[in-house]
Design a protein around this nucleic acid. Sequence first.
DNA 1: ATACTTAGTTGTACAGTCCAACTAACTTAG
DNA 2: CTAAGTTAGTTGGACTGTACAACTAAGTAT
Lengths: 235, 235
Amino acid sequence: MPEKPELDFPRPLTTVDVVIFAIRSDALQVLLVQRPRTETEPFPGAWALPGGFVDIAGDRDLEACAARKLKDKTGVVSPYLEQLGSWGSAMRDPRGWSATHAYFALLPEHAAGGPLAADAQWFAIEGEKVRPKLAFDHAEILQAAVQRLRSKVEYTSLPAYLMPPEFTLPELQRTFEIVLDRPLEKSAFRTRMLAADLIEPVARMRKGPNRPAQLYRLKKAKAPVFFARTFNPPG
Amino acid sequence: MPEKPELDFPRPLTTVDVVIFAIRSDALQVLLVQRPRTETEPFPGAWALPGGFVDIAGDRDLEACAARKLKDKTGVVSPYLEQLGSWGSAMRDPRGWSATHAYFALLPEHAAGGPLAADAQWFAIEGEKVRPKLAFDHAEILQAAVQRLRSKVEYTSLPAYLMPPEFTLPELQRTFEIVLDRPLEKSAFRTRMLAADLIEPVARMRKGPNRPAQLYRLKKAKAPVFFARTFNPPG
DNA sequence: ATACTTAGTTGTACAGTCCAACTAACTTAG
DNA sequence: CTAAGTTAGTTGGACTGTACAACTAAGTAT
């Protein structure tokens, strides 16, 4: 064994990628960025998750690095940022052994409407994928993010982070349904949401062509609520 | 901007750590290793999670690296190995910016009884901690592992991986209770386990000083089962 | 007024947990 | 041989929350 063997080990490339979700046009969408068309870069011109190398001089930790990359592309700070997992192997990046730390973020509708970085664009989720072929193993990471989001939406209040500051219960239910891609039962949904210490009514109504609906807002600084059951007990 | 700026970025140290759980002496225990007492190593003599640097020449991917480290310390292959998350920051390792990919593994009782590496030892979980002070941020990682395990045990069949090849329903319930650190209701537990397509009876009974109990085994190659509810609805 | 649409409630059925009491099968003490 | 003790396993009633469906409420449009 040589001295200081470990520090002399070659180190993997280390990146952070962020899967940024929002509801836009009544659909679940994800933010992608187009890779530069430089020949020295892998996957030139392909779409990829926003992300990049950890800056060990500037980034305090992985989450700060993820928040920075999110802010770079959207200009906003996400109300919800969760670590998704890490992917590392010899093959995933043609430049060599690399590992990425993946996060996923939920942006409220109004925040997702703002200006984006020039290379960024929203894409609708279709199934667990997105239409363009993604760089690296980002299709796999995106699929894991969609699965994780859907599975948590079964028993948590995560979609509340996708809502504007004030919203009605039918709008909240619609957001759950968009994420889950299946209809939910109205009365059970209302019972569950109102029983949770999650939202509170505001003194206004949403007026439309039909019966007005009560407006609610998230109780302040609210962490996601965990429910004791999934929505539909399985088969 | 210099050319090839990113590849010339200094890279973080990259490690993999494994939180290995087993039931021993009717308690949830975790495997720790004692760090070498070499002066050039950080935390000499302290207890730490088994792990170490990724070998980019030998390890195909992160999970293979975790499985290798598990095998090094216990000699066995875990029936359950799940990624827990990653921790990376400028401060967690005195040698510089480092990131670790943490996994957690569940060993069946009989596999956890075998010979260990010389520097390895089992420790009981007390609360969400272990008695010795751990190196690096391993106390935080261990705490996250215990929380993840407990939370998943509320609605999955994970403890089945901690059981020997044949076991009774009361033994399985006891394992759930050890992990959750709280008693469960007998009839609801049996209903749930038998309704799940998880275990099957074998043609033998566990004989003891009292009424014999039916022996079961896991249905083969069984992925963990997810239940639609937690055990005790909160509130 | 009447039809239409969406918001919100109500009632019955059902699934599964909670709690408690019960029966079953074995060992040990006397 | 019987009685006591222990653990395995079942049963039944109360309760919680979803499923399904029908209902009422409040607005707009014709």
